[in-house]
């Protein structure tokens, strides 16, 4: 499992694209928003949590179609499926590698971009907490979507159509934590809901992803 994780991370780091691309995309989205809605700092401060969450979500989505497609093309997925390691564990490791290379940098970069969007002071902590809690769920759900569309030639657009509705609950609670944190409201309920969604998706979705992958590898 560790070897698989290390391999995936090495591939993501060295092949280019994976690591930097998501971050760059996140940065560009954040820069484009003030250009689109105007530079009024009060307006930006109110929409900052939502924008940062949306940017992180789209950056996650961007790298999903490469998550399994490369292994599918060169046949290493077939090897993984026949390996002694259960496919469920392999899929979980894939999601973890995706999170470390995409989700974690986003979490770390978010405060910096929060400054750009004039995020109110108390919001920074809860923005980071909500992203740290929510992005693993995004990776796991995304892995399910990638497993569904892995056999398709032009799966990219379909992948977005399938995955985005599944992202709705995570986005709602994640952005709600960040928004409430920014204006100093009580955040207990959405934080717990967000953590619950993440825990449940990590526990259950790998089984669905592995089942779907087996069908695709048939």
């Amino acid at each position: 499992m560790i070897a698989l994780l290390a391999r995936d991370m090495k591939l993501a780091l060295r092949a280019g694209g994976g690591f930097g691309l998501g971050l760059a995309f996140f940065l560009i989205v954040t820069v484009l928003v003030p250009l689109g809605v105007g530079p009024q700092s009060a307006l930006l401060a109110t929409i900052a949590p939502g924008i940062l969450w949306l940017g992180a979500l789209l950056a996650c989505l961007l790298s999903l179609d490469r998550l399994l497609a490369l292994d599918w093309e060169d046949g290493s997925l077939d090897l993984l499926a026949t390996a002694p390691l259960p496919l469920e564990a392999a899929v979980t490791m894939k999601a973890l590698a995706h999170w470390i290379t995409t989700g974690l940098p986003l979490v770390l970069a978010a405060p910096v971009l929060g400054v750009l969007l004039n995020l109110p002071g108390p919001g920074f902590l809860w923005l980071v907490v909500s992203l740290a809690l929510g992005t693993p769920a995004l990776s796991v759900i995304g892995t399910f979507g990638a497993a569904l569309t892995v056999g398709l030639k032009r799966g990219g657009l379909l992948l977005s159509l399938l995955v985005l509705p599944l992202y709705v609950p995570t986005l709602i609670f994640g952005a709600e934590v960040a928004r409430r944190g920014a204006i100093g409201m009580d955040i207990a309920t959405p934080v717990l809901m967000l953590a619950g969604i993440t825990a449940a998706t990590i526990a259950l979705l790998p089984f669905a992803s592995a089942a779907v992958l087996r069908v695709n590898l048939r």
Binding site: L148, L166, V168, P169, I172, T189, A208, A211
Partner: peptide, 19 residues
């Protein structure tokens, strides 16, 4: 499988938007 997973998430979304 998508229908099964989607059902769970649809119900979840229903309560999430309520909140």
């Amino acid at each position: 499988v998508l229908c099964l997973v989607g059902s769970v998430f649809a119900v979840l979304s229903r309560y999430a938007v309520n909140f």
